[in-house]
């Protein structure tokens, strides 16, 4: 704030939970000079229509960020690390056919 009433404002990331047991989902952010006002503003922006059962308000500078492409997007084909990485459709069909043959 420019009128000398507090330290420079910070950005706070807000996560909300719609119903008890639901995952916390990132909703957006608010600017506020401190945690207390950040909580009030988060409530007004993401809770005033009774759409939330819980809010998490986190100072953006308290978040540890990882966005290094060498770590997250390595240059080699890593498709085999994905659940769909192995194509087993044909193997499965062959196995089923074999099983059918053996039991007949």
């Amino acid at each position: 704030m420019s009128d000398g009433t507090g330290p420079a404002e910070r950005i706070w990331e807000v996560f909300r939970q719609e119903a008890e047991g639901d995952p916390m989902i990132h909703s957006g952010n608010v600017r506020a000079p401190d945690e207390e006002l950040a909580m009030h503003y988060a409530r007004e922006f993401y809770g005033r229509r009774q759409e939330s059962t819980r809010l998490w308000v986190v100072a953006r500078d308290a978040i540890t960020e990882l966005d290094d492409p060498d770590l997250l997007k390595p240059p080699f084909d890593r498709s085999f690390k994905r659940p769909g990485g192995y194509l087993i459709k044909h193997k499965l069909e062959a196995a089923k056919a074999r099983a059918a043959e053996e039991s007949s």
Partner: peptide, 20 residues
């Protein structure tokens, strides 16, 4: 309850700087 919390925050904030 939260109106009061909100205003309490502002009162203390403004009271914390001389001009305000």
């Amino acid at each position: 309850r939260y109106h009061l919390m909100h205003l309490d925050t502002w009162l203390r904030r403004l009271a914390g700087s001389d001009g305000a």
